[in-house]
Design a binder for these strands. Structure first.
Lengths: 333, 333
DNA sequence: TTGTACGCGTTATCAG
DNA sequence: CTGATAACGCGTACAA
């Protein structure tokens, strides 16, 4: 079942069938209708490989993420895929894990599949060592590379990021305004997004004339139990704190569990702020005040930019989106 | 940069290059080494389209899921993708939503992309009307169709399911054994998996000589707040119950919130059982007793079966995997 | 408006 | 063990 079968049955040449297929206007209504009829009758679909062979493109975008089961990334994938589909593109998903080596492997795999662009979803793809990012910069010489919540400077590389610094800055400021003075900061990673959040926390303290104390800043696995146990440990070691600012809802849930175990009243004895406004935020008692990082807007903007790139429109190499603070019951504000 | 460039530079024919590429043994060590050297030097990668054109296959599997942001499906995608990769296959992901029409569209889209198989992840793909599933049965005439936690009879269709009936049956039995007599059943959908869970609940009651009362069985959106409010409503209407069995952790979290609002002691006044053993289960206080539906095992088995199909091994058309009951603090057992 | 003929890069089948 | 050559199905100059 190919274009020849259709052309034979419709009594036209393959060129005409191809024209009908691709909406070329230089076909009479009559033959167009006849060809369409035959295509339907035969249930014909053009062969993507043959098409790709000639054109070198296949309207498919590669999406890389470190872990699709992470709620944030899972949503990102969902929105990216949806927006691509709307624009007539398919997507190939790769879950890379966190090692640089596998990331490079998947990146090359996608390039070998001749995808039209690669989207790096999440801030885990940019390495601190410049050299470790050259594979991305090299790849960008052939196809556009889109970063969702990550930033890398380079030709044909486009970043869409959430203003994490500002978001944490604002939330920390409100904690302070509501009377908190000893704010623990819990974070999971030193990624682009991670360092920005941290900066927001530090700047807010400094801005309010409060000291930034290293003993209040702790890294922690993205895991409820780890966060709970870490706080338990800190309290046992005599650290006094009246609020916990986190880089992820998971850690904030851990903080709530900690408060329950210590019989602390939330938010009076302990205020807690999460990040991502995930479904976890409404699973807890009390429900979690959390920063909405606007995944959907981020993903939509990413795809819009990408389509702009494809259409030769002049698009910004960096787009920043503001986060929202969703106030619930774990803060006094 | 193609096979001709390599052949020229290596001083052999393209046929030989192709043989080297595909590990054909009929090449002398010497020329093999030379060709490999040239390929590395030129950084040559074979063109997937040309390969696909000739072979009609591209070692890519289509994965369909209704919503990749659902935690259960997100995990399923992760495991499926990983297992496929291990076996040298890539995957194209489609998030279909829930309407039959879009499901069919995506299904056909994947077929037009010439994927080697389609995996339908989750139990939302099999429609109650036989006619609505014919598109799947038709597709199976060309490529194997794999169902993850769904069942459809047909040639070249393979199902891997979790024994949901047994799991709920057992958990309900334990609720009864621990003294519960009035067990509300909350469920989200009437899918294959959904009806089996329900059957487990009913059979357990019947098996213990308890009546199955429709006023104890309620459908509910997969949403914490909906579940909480539904129970609030039921209690207000005078329904008396001492346990809530659910088809999803989300609903169970809602039940915990309900208990908190009513100042009920868990599990003494109210026992609660979730389903899927998701991360929600450890977000709550008290932590949730939940049924582990073994997504990873399900996905591994699915891909193993699929590889068996590709290799012409005689594989079962249906594989059933037993669930685990994870006991935490919302039940007396 | 329509048709012919060629190129895209690979694999597979022969013949040597 | 190696090479020449015919598919594979489509898009598209170019010719009519």
């Amino acid at each position: 079942m190919n274009i020849y079968d259709v052309s034979k049955k419709a009594g036209v040449s393959i060129a005409t069938v191809s024209r009908v297929l691709n909406g070329n206007p230089n076909v009479s209504e009559k033959t167009r209708a006849r060809v369409h009829a035959v295509m339907n009758e035969l249930g014909y679909t053009p062969n993507v490989f043959a098409r790709g062979l000639g054109l070198g493109s296949i309207k498919t975008i590669g999406i890389m993420c470190s872990d699709s089961s992470d709620p944030y990334l899972a949503h990102a994938i969902y929105y990216l895929e949806r927006e691509l589909r709307v624009n007539g593109y398919d997507s190939i998903l790769c879950c890379t894990g966190n090692s640089l080596e596998t990331k490079q492997q998947y990146f090359n795999l996608l390039r070998s599949k001749k995808v039209d662009a690669i989207i790096l979803a999440g801030s885990k793809f940019i390495e601190p060592k410049v050299k470790d990012n050259t594979y991305i910069i090299d790849g960008a010489q052939e196809i556009p590379i889109m970063l969702v919540n990550g930033y890398l400077e380079g030709d044909n590389i486009y970043s869409t990021v959430c203003d994490d610094r500002m978001a944490v800055h604002k939330a920390t400021g409100q904690l302070i305004a509501s009377g908190c003075r000893k704010i623990v900061y819990l974070y999971t990673s030193n990624s682009f997004s991670g360092t920005n959040k941290m900066k927001g926390y530090r700047d807010a303290l400094t801005g309010h004339g409060l000291p930034v104390r290293p003993e209040y800043i702790h890294q922690c696995e993205k895991n409820v139990i780890c966060a709970r146990d870490l706080l338990l440990e800190l309290a046992k070691d005599g650290l006094v704190f009246d609020a916990v600012m986190t880089s992820d809802d998971t850690l904030a849930v851990g903080a709530i569990k900690y408060a329950h175990m210590q019989d602390l009243k939330i938010p009076d004895d302990l205020s807690i702020v999460g990040y991502n406004n995930s479904t976890y935020a409404i699973c807890t008692d009390p429900e979690l005040t959390s920063i909405d990082s606007k995944v959907e807007a981020l993903c939509t903007a990413t795809i819009n930019t990408l389509m702009g790139v494809f259409n030769g429109v002049n698009v910004p190499s960096r787009t920043t989106i503001a986060a929202d603070l969703i106030k619930r019951a774990t803060t006094k504000f």
